[in-house]
């Protein structure tokens, strides 16, 4: 690892960044798509944290959601379907000075990328992961995803989807080393912003499932939720995600201690309401990028160490 990189990141930067400084080309999602809201909130988040654009990297897979990095003026890596996490891990592991974000769709993360998801959680790399969950394959036109509700009609399962959906939060909480697991919704920007800020403070992989409106294919699923705010259950705790505006807006609130893993898991079984907030947080889990950082060596030192290797294999 190059400590010189850390020096650069630590250097004071006189620039002041406004949300618009992070603005890339105009986004091309369908009108009313929840991704717009997430993008706008992300820019506000970047402003509030004053993240240096050239030190910020958004990595994504493939899907509507995966276009996200294109619309920001930071570094971006629009990769391949399901594989954003390994790319992000490779970048973060060797470049601790970068702020690395991962944007995935529900198909991206919980289907084709499920292996990387489980192991990504276990590596617990310093990343913020945004799961843009619209309960459907958007870009490929309405196929069943692992989070599509059972019986929901799609183009691949027109008789209604056959299987019970998986719960991304429940799965994540089941993986060793899960360290920050939260749920929020694109149509509650204040909550989303507060969640992203909390994630930024967290050392480790922050997994944020964002319920995302897809007016094109799943309008009925998400609209019902948008229109019935009473369906939401805001999780409050002094160590959780609290936002005064949100607390005013939503009727249903409950205390949940994010250090309580069993309680967090129990919350994923809640059928009466949709809990929004921080399910679980553990600051004490080592991060893979730190575990694997290693010492810094000069070229001369490395060459001397290779000579030692040659000596071992000398004839």
């Amino acid at each position: 690892m190059d400590t010189s990189l850390l020096d650069i990141s630590g250097a004071p930067d006189e620039r002041v960044f406004k949300a618009n400084d992070y603005k890339g080309p105009a986004a091309r999602w369908c009108p009313g798509c929840g991704d717009f809201s997430i993008l706008a909130t992300t820019r506000r988040f970047l402003e509030s944290e004053q993240l240096v654009p050239e030190k910020t990297l958004f990595v994504s897979g493939i899907g509507c959601s995966a276009r996200f990095p294109h619309y920001l003026k930071t570094y971006g890596f629009h990769g391949i379907h399901g594989r954003a996490l390994p790319l992000a891990l490779g970048a973060k592991m060797r470049r601790p000075d970068l702020n690395v974000f991962v944007v995935m769709g529900d198909g991206d993360c919980t289907s084709i990328g499920a292996g990387h998801w489980i192991h990504g959680v276990r590596y617990n790399t310093n990343l913020t992961v945004l799961l843009l969950d619209n309960n459907i394959y958007g870009l490929t036109k309405k196929q069943t995803s692992p989070t599509t509700p059972v019986k929901y009609v799609t183009n691949t399962q027109p008789q209604g989807s056959y299987l019970n959906p998986l719960h991304p939060i429940a799965v994540t909480l089941g993986v060793a080393n899960a360290s920050f697991v939260a749920q929020t919704a694109d149509w509650i920007p204040a909550h989303l912003l507060a969640t992203m800020k909390a994630a930024q403070k967290h050392k480790g992989l922050s997994f944020i499932r964002i319920l995302q409106r897809c007016p094109k294919w799943t309008v009925d699923i998400m609209d019902a939720k948008v229109k019935t705010p009473d369906e939401m259950m805001i999780l409050n705790h002094e160590n959780g995600i609290t936002d005064a505006k949100v607390q005013k807006m939503y009727k249903n609130q409950m205390e949940h201690d994010p250090s309580d893993l069993d309680a967090a898991r129990a919350l994923t079984d809640m059928t009466s309401h949709i809990p929004l907030g921080l399910f679980y947080k553990n600051e004490d889990i080592p991060t893979y990028d730190e575990l694997r950082r290693g010492k810094d060596f000069t070229t001369e030192e490395k060459m001397a160490n290779i000579e030692i290797e040659f000596d071992r294999f000398a004839v």
């Binding site: 990297l57 990595v59 990769g79």
Partner: peptide, 20 residues
Amino acid sequence: HQAEDEIGAIGVALGASYAG
């Protein structure tokens, strides 16, 4: 880096290389 599979492995290599 012993990855979860060969896809993860090349992804990590590519991510590191992308990052310079």
